[in-house]
Amino acid sequence: MAIAILGAGIFAREAHLPALQKLAGIVPDLKAVYSHSEGSATKLATLATTTLGLSSAPSVYHDFDASANLDALLARDDITSVIVILPILVQPSVILKALAAGKHVLSEKPVAKDVKSGLELIAEYEAKYKSKGLVWRVAENFEAEPGFIRVADAIKKGRIGRVQQFHARVVNFVDAESKWYNTAWRNVPEYQGGFILDGGVHTTAALRTILPSPGMTHLSAFASLNKRMLAPQDTVHAIVKVGDQAHGIVDMTWGHPVQARPNSDGFLFTGEKGWISVNQITDSATNAPILRIKISTHEGDETIDEPSKGVEAELASFFAKVKGEETLDIGHPLEALKDVTFVQAALSSSGALVDLGALVASG
Rank of each mutant, 00 (worst) to 15 (best):
V94M: 14
A346D: 05
A98S: 14
L106S: 11
G310K: 05
T286D: 08
S81Q: 06
E335V: 10
K273D: 15
G266W: 00
V135I: 15
V250K: 00
V240F: 05
E326W: 01
L353A: 02
Y129L: 02
F142D: 08
V170Q: 13
T50A: 10
A112P: 04
P92M: 02
R150V: 01
E108W: 06
W180F: 13
A68F: 05
Y125I: 05
F64C: 04
A19R: 14
E177A: 14
I149H: 12
E314K: 11
G215P: 02
S131G: 09
A206P: 15
I295R: 10
V258E: 14
F173A: 06
D65H: 09
A288I: 04
V278D: 03
T270E: 12
G300Y: 14
A4V: 08
L134Y: 08
L197T: 04
P28T: 07
A32R: 01
E120Y: 07
L353M: 09
G255M: 01
P257D: 08
G331A: 03
A139S: 14
L47P: 01
S35V: 02
F166S: 04
E120L: 13
K156F: 10
A41P: 09
V135Q: 11
E108G: 10
A238N: 09
N263C: 03
P307G: 06
E326S: 09
V322I: 13
V135R: 08
E312K: 08
W185K: 04
A361M: 05
Y34A: 07
E272N: 06
P289S: 02
T50I: 05
A352W: 00
A352P: 01
K31E: 15
G215F: 08
A345L: 00
K179H: 06
K128R: 11
P92S: 05
S93W: 02
P189N: 08
I5Q: 14
L315T: 00
D153Q: 15
S107P: 08
L89R: 12
G215N: 04
M1G: 15
L47G: 00
I281F: 12
L121G: 13
S284T: 12
V250F: 13
R208T: 08
P232Y: 00
L334T: 11
R228F: 07
K323Q: 14
S107D: 09
I83F: 14
S117L: 15
K294N: 13
A15L: 14
K156T: 11
E190N: 15
R13H: 14
R169G: 06
P232W: 00
R208F: 07
L74F: 04
P18I: 12
I79C: 02
P212L: 13
A358Q: 11
K31C: 09
G158E: 07
W254R: 03
E177K: 14
S117A: 15
L6N: 10
D329N: 13
G357R: 05
S93F: 06
G133H: 05
A15C: 13
N287Q: 14
V236I: 15
A41L: 00
V170I: 11
E272F: 01
E306D: 07
